[in-house]
Design a protein around this nucleic acid. Structure first.
Length: 196
DNA sequence: GGGCCGATTAGG
DNA sequence: CTAATCGGCCCG
């Protein structure tokens, strides 16, 4: 139940993605428990934007850990990531990298009426069970790209109560590096985007 | 400038 | 199963 700070995003993206499971993510009057994440690493990961895009590589070098990386997919869907920069510290552990954590699904816990309004009165189970659904439900869009979530009015991120049980699987919806087990799920949650 | 391809979603 | 819809990248 403690507020996370940008220090949380100074660690390896895989650890970060795993530890975000069970955290409460709030934007304005809406909030949800994070139940599905995916890690992407800035180097050695063909599925990461940094693999092809100079702009993504510049984003990593030019921004602080925790910065929001928001991008438009299929010309219509905003997807939300946290920038993770483990590379600057903790070198002794060797496996520390830079990258991103994609938030793929939430269990809605607050502002459900507003979420339904934004999501065309969709059923509760369909409000945040996908990476583009949750940005719509929370009101996240391109204007948030590059901003620091911890300085945005009304944004909160707090650690779980207790210790969540986390499941691991391969990432979905991509065509490169489909065998990396870098997708994390809250055990028992029905809110995940698909499979499980 | 043109063609192609997405970290997706809602609706037949 | 497919349409929707647009920014990046890779050519030429």
């Amino acid at each position: 139940m403690k507020p996370l700070t940008s220090v949380f995003f100074r660690q390896d993206p895989l650890l970060c993605a795993r530890e975000l499971i069970g955290c409460r993510f709030g934007v304005g009057e809406t909030a949800g428990i994070i139940v599905e994440t995916e890690a992407y690493t800035a180097e050695g990961d063909p599925a990461c934007h940094t693999w092809k895009r100079q702009g993504a590589r510049d984003f990593v070098t030019g921004n602080d850990p925790g910065t929001a990386y928001v991008y438009l997919n299929y010309g219509m869907h905003w997807l939300f990531n946290f920038l993770v920069k483990g590379g600057a510290v903790d070198d002794k552990h060797g496996e520390t990298r830079n990258g991103f954590v994609l938030i793929r699904a939430l269990d809605p816990v607050a502002g459900i009426g507003l979420m339904q309004e934004r999501r065309k009165r969709m059923a509760i189970g369909e409000l945040c069970n996908g990476p583009a659904k949750l940005t719509q439900a929370l009101g996240i869009h391109g204007a948030h790209h590059g901003s620091n979530p911890f300085s945005l009015e009304g944004w909160t991120l707090t650690s779980p109560e207790g210790t969540p049980e986390v499941l691991v699987s391969t990432r979905i919806g991509i065509s490169q590096a489909t065998d990396y087990p870098w997708r994390f799920l809250l055990k028992g949650s029905l809110g995940v985007s698909s499979c499980a």
